[in-house]
């Protein structure tokens, strides 16, 4: 029996494809997340007058609240998906490092959350009459960094909460306070980018903080994930 050499990247890719394929077959979580994002965009239009200039000033905040809440629905499913038939046991038993399992799942979550965000973003532009495309590349960069922050901590907390009662409630309770710095940064930057102002020396501290947050929590998660999985 010849074992082919399976590189780390291919192990990550295998988990990543599996998660995406399983989700796209049923589309349960992504549909729920998308409809939730729409409902929130609608609700905000009642809370804040969409035609007011002040609403446009806080648009970054509104947008990231929509992203964070809708993303939570997807992240909740990440490890819960493995529970049904005790699939998590088989994944832990498989000869791949815990960090590869974690990265594959985190990347799959990232793609799913990004997909919801990229649908919600133009809708937001239409509903609130915001020309969000003027700083498109920088805006995308901020959204990618903010979303990765959300998915990396969300994925590890999804593993922490998978076996407990009230799983759906516990994930946001743990994840949102940790995410506050990243969300603050993403909100600040998004607000000014959506208003057409590029990132300058004034606010690039936020960008650095976002990058630092991503790097730091990715590293800590990769170190601790094996402990979370097998103790």
């Amino acid at each position: 029996m010849g074992y082919a050499r399976l590189g780390y990247a291919r192990q990550v890719a295998t988990i990543f494809t599996k998660d995406l394929r399983a989700e796209l077959r049923t589309k349960e979580a992504i549909n729920a997340s998308l409809s939730f994002a729409l409902v929130m965009l609608l609700l905000f239009s009642f809370a804040f007058d969409p035609s007011e200039e002040t609403t446009r000033e806080i648009s970054g905040g509104l947008l990231w609240i929509v992203f964070a809440f809708a993303g939570t629905l997807l992240l909740n499913r990440s490890f819960a998906r493995e529970l049904g038939n005790d699939c998590l046991d088989a994944l832990i038993a498989a000869p791949i490092p815990g960090s590869a399992l974690f990265l594959g799942k985190a990347l799959a979550n990232f793609v799913l959350v990004m997909a919801v965000e990229l649908i919600a973003l133009p809708l937001f532009g239409i509903f609130y009459n915001v020309k969000w495309t003027s700083q498109f590349p920088q805006l995308m960069m901020v959204i990618v960094l903010g979303t990765w922050a959300m998915t990396v901590t969300g994925t590890i907390f999804s593993a922490l909460t998978v076996n407990i009662r009230l799983r759906e409630v516990m994930l946001p309770i743990l994840n949102f306070p940790i995410l506050i710095p990243a969300l603050l940064g993403a909100m600040q930057l998004t607000s000014s980018l959506v208003a057409g102002k590029p990132i300058t020396a004034d606010n690039d501290a936020w960008l650095k903080m976002l990058i630092g947050f991503d790097v730091m929590y990715t590293a800590v998660s990769l170190v601790l994930v094996e402990t979370v999985l097998v103790g």
Binding site: K18, R21, A22, E23, R25, T26, G84, N85, D86, C87, D89, A90, A93
Partner: peptide, 12 residues
């Protein structure tokens, strides 16, 4: 290892 669950994915 074969445990109590079947460890295969319903969606696949």
């Amino acid at each position: 290892y074969i445990g109590h669950g079947i460890s295969v994915y319903d969606e696949l």
